[in-house]
Simulated scan of single mutants.
Amino acid sequence: MRKSNFALRLQPSLLEEARKVAETEGVALNQLINVAVAEKLSALRVESYFEERAARADIPKALDVLKRAGKGKKPMQGDELAR
Score class of each variant (00 low, 15 high):
residue 2 R to C: 01
residue 2 R to I: 04
residue 2 R to E: 09
residue 2 R to W: 00
residue 2 R to D: 14
residue 2 R to T: 12
residue 3 K to S: 15
residue 3 K to N: 11
residue 5 N to A: 14
residue 6 F to N: 14
residue 7 A to V: 15
residue 7 A to N: 12
residue 7 A to S: 12
residue 7 A to L: 14
residue 7 A to F: 11
residue 8 L to R: 00
residue 9 R to V: 12
residue 9 R to A: 15
residue 9 R to F: 12
residue 10 L to P: 15
residue 10 L to N: 07
residue 10 L to R: 10
residue 10 L to G: 13
residue 11 Q to E: 15
residue 11 Q to T: 13
residue 11 Q to G: 12
residue 12 P to K: 11
residue 12 P to A: 11
residue 12 P to H: 03
residue 13 S to E: 15
residue 15 L to Q: 14
residue 16 E to Y: 05
residue 16 E to S: 13
residue 17 E to S: 10
residue 17 E to T: 10
residue 18 A to E: 06
residue 20 K to S: 04
residue 20 K to H: 03
residue 20 K to T: 08
residue 22 A to E: 01
residue 22 A to I: 01
residue 22 A to M: 01
residue 23 E to N: 07
residue 24 T to G: 12
residue 24 T to K: 10
residue 25 E to R: 03
residue 25 E to G: 09
residue 25 E to I: 02
residue 26 G to N: 00
residue 26 G to A: 06
residue 27 V to E: 02
residue 27 V to P: 00
residue 28 A to D: 10
residue 30 N to Q: 01
residue 30 N to T: 05
residue 30 N to F: 02
residue 30 N to L: 00
residue 31 Q to V: 13
residue 32 L to I: 03
residue 32 L to D: 00
residue 32 L to E: 01
residue 33 I to A: 00
residue 33 I to K: 00
residue 33 I to F: 00
residue 35 V to K: 08
residue 36 A to H: 02
residue 36 A to R: 04
residue 37 V to K: 05
residue 37 V to C: 15
residue 38 A to W: 00
residue 38 A to L: 04
residue 39 E to Y: 04
residue 39 E to H: 11
residue 39 E to V: 07
residue 39 E to K: 11
residue 40 K to T: 13
residue 40 K to R: 13
residue 41 L to V: 10
residue 41 L to P: 07
residue 42 S to W: 07
residue 44 L to S: 09
residue 44 L to I: 10
residue 44 L to V: 13
residue 45 R to F: 12
residue 46 V to M: 09
residue 46 V to L: 07
residue 47 E to G: 05
residue 47 E to W: 08
residue 47 E to V: 09
residue 48 S to C: 10
residue 48 S to G: 08
residue 50 F to K: 00
residue 50 F to D: 12
residue 50 F to I: 14
residue 51 E to C: 09
residue 52 E to T: 02
residue 53 R to Y: 04
residue 53 R to K: 07
residue 54 A to W: 03
residue 55 A to L: 12
residue 55 A to Q: 12
residue 55 A to R: 08
residue 56 R to H: 13
residue 56 R to E: 15
residue 56 R to K: 13
residue 56 R to W: 08
residue 58 D to N: 05
residue 58 D to R: 00
residue 61 K to M: 10
residue 61 K to H: 09
residue 62 A to D: 12
residue 62 A to G: 08
residue 63 L to M: 07
residue 63 L to Y: 07
residue 64 D to V: 06
residue 64 D to I: 04
residue 65 V to F: 10
residue 66 L to P: 10
residue 67 K to R: 15
residue 68 R to D: 13
residue 68 R to I: 06
residue 68 R to S: 13
residue 68 R to C: 07
residue 69 A to D: 01
residue 70 G to C: 07
residue 71 K to E: 14
residue 71 K to P: 03
residue 72 G to E: 08
residue 72 G to Q: 04
residue 73 K to N: 03
residue 73 K to P: 05
residue 73 K to T: 11
residue 76 M to A: 09
residue 77 Q to H: 02
residue 77 Q to K: 07
residue 77 Q to W: 00
residue 78 G to K: 03
residue 78 G to C: 07
residue 79 D to M: 06
residue 80 E to S: 02
residue 80 E to I: 04
residue 81 L to H: 03
residue 82 A to K: 03
residue 83 R to M: 05
residue 83 R to A: 11
residue 83 R to P: 14
residue 83 R to H: 05
residue 83 R to Q: 03
